[in-house]
């Protein structure tokens, strides 16, 4: 088999996963898309292992490890999503922007203190 087949499939699957991670609103769906990306990686590993046929069978071993780690990760990830849901009442990632630092509107912004003090002194 031409190596291109599994490699291209993995690449495209990866890209689909990327789209899912960046575009989906629900946190669980994001985790799903991460799974897609990991699976693309697994496919790559297996394909290259089949191509290389090395003595360590590194590709397959690593695939197994990846699957295991992915399972652990999705378990923990869902626990975190549940915590987020409990705290916020929603699993919407777009609502979880507490770490952001948006600019206040111009109306609420106050001028620098130095000018005020100087003008106050001039008037006095």
């Amino acid at each position: 088999m031409h190596l291109v087949y599994p490699a291209v499939l993995a690449a495209l699957l990866f890209a689909v996963g990327v789209y899912g991670v960046l575009a989906r609103r629900n946190a669980v769906l994001v985790l799903m898309s991460v799974e897609l990306m990991l699976n693309a990686v697994n496919l790559n590993l297996v394909a290259f292992d089949a191509w290389l046929r090395d003595s360590l069978h590194a590709g397959q071993a690593l695939t197994l490890f990846t699957i295991t780690v992915a399972a652990a990760e999705v378990g923990l990830g869902l626990a975190i999503v549940l915590l987020l849901f409990r705290a916020r009442g929603t699993a919407d990632i777009d609502r979880a922007t507490a770490l952001g630092d948006p600019a206040e509107s111009l109306a609420t912004e106050e001028p620098p203190n130095g000018a005020e003090a100087l003008k106050g002194q001039a008037a006095a």
Binding site: A11, V18, Y19, A23, R24, I93
Partner: peptide, 24 residues
Amino acid sequence: ADSKNRWVALAVALASAGTLVTLV
């Protein structure tokens, strides 16, 4: 279900797909 990020996401995904496929 999709955030307003999706067009950027689409662009990034297409770009990464294109890059990877070409390279591969």
